[in-house]
Simulated scan of single mutants.
Amino acid sequence: MSDLSAQQVKQRFGVSIPIKAMPVQLSEQEERNVSTVLKYMRTAYSYELNSGKDSVLEFCAPNNTFSAPSTFPTAHTVDEYAGSHAKVLQSLNDLHIIQFDVVIAKEDFISLRYTAEGTHTGEPHGGIQPNGQHAQWTAQGSFIMEGGKIKHWWKDWDKMRMWKGLGWVKPTDAEFL
């Protein structure tokens, strides 16, 4: 495993987000798949680049699927997730991925964990007015690739840590140990 600076990741994959741990050797197919996933993530997490599901279609295989029932229950495709995430970006217009904590690639399977952050300075979220509160959280995704494009994505994220930091959930709503 090795770590890559933002500059090294940009040179290798076209995305300026550091990777803390990744296998040293990847096949050509794995390099292509990692590049696709990282570019998709950069777009989906960018206020400037994510204008909805059409902004990520180049990264999505036909008939793709997405599964994150506790986080985005109405998104069932990888491109629908980007559309749903574009709405989150309206509230957190500085939302971005700080780093990819780990990226694993094996043939047509990519798994990654990442750390993100954002501040509620945009539009209201769920009836909560912008409050300037900031949060940092982690998330992970497991991707199945087909022909160098995302065929399926399973996503989980530490939503409670994010929501607590942003003031979107109150301590009386949930206990944190």
Score class of each variant (00 low, 15 high):
Ala44Gly: 11
Lys39Gln: 06
Ser35Trp: 14
Ser51Gly: 04
Ile150Cys: 02
Ser55Ile: 01
Val37Glu: 00
Gly83Thr: 00
Pro23Glu: 01
Ser70Phe: 07
His134Pro: 03
Pro69Phe: 11
Leu38Glu: 11
Met1Asp: 08
Lys53Gln: 05
Thr119Ala: 12
Gly167Ile: 05
Val103Cys: 09
Val34Lys: 05
His85Pro: 09
Ser16Ala: 15
Gln8His: 03
Val102Lys: 01
Leu92Gln: 10
Ala68His: 04
Gly141Val: 14
Val169Ile: 15
Ile19Asn: 13
Thr115Pro: 13
Trp154Gly: 12
Lys106Trp: 15
Val24Trp: 02
Gly141Arg: 13
Asp79Gly: 02
Lys39Cys: 06
Ala105Glu: 01
Ser142Trp: 06
His152Leu: 03
Ala6Pro: 13
Asn93Arg: 14
Asn33Gly: 04
Gly148Ser: 07
Ala116Cys: 08
His85Met: 05
Phe100Pro: 06
Leu57Val: 01
Ala139Gly: 06
Gln11Lys: 06
Gln133Ser: 08
Pro18Asn: 09
Thr74Cys: 08
Ser5Ala: 09
Ile110Asn: 06
Asp94Pro: 12
Pro171Asn: 04
Arg32Tyr: 04
Val34Leu: 13
Pro73Ile: 02
Tyr114Ala: 01
Gly118Cys: 10
Val102Glu: 13
Trp163Phe: 15
Asp94Arg: 12
Asp79Ser: 05
Val103Ile: 07
Thr36Leu: 10
Arg12Cys: 12
Ser111Thr: 13
Thr71Lys: 07
Ala61Arg: 00
Ser27Phe: 04
Gln29Ile: 07
Glu107Ala: 14
Lys87Glu: 15
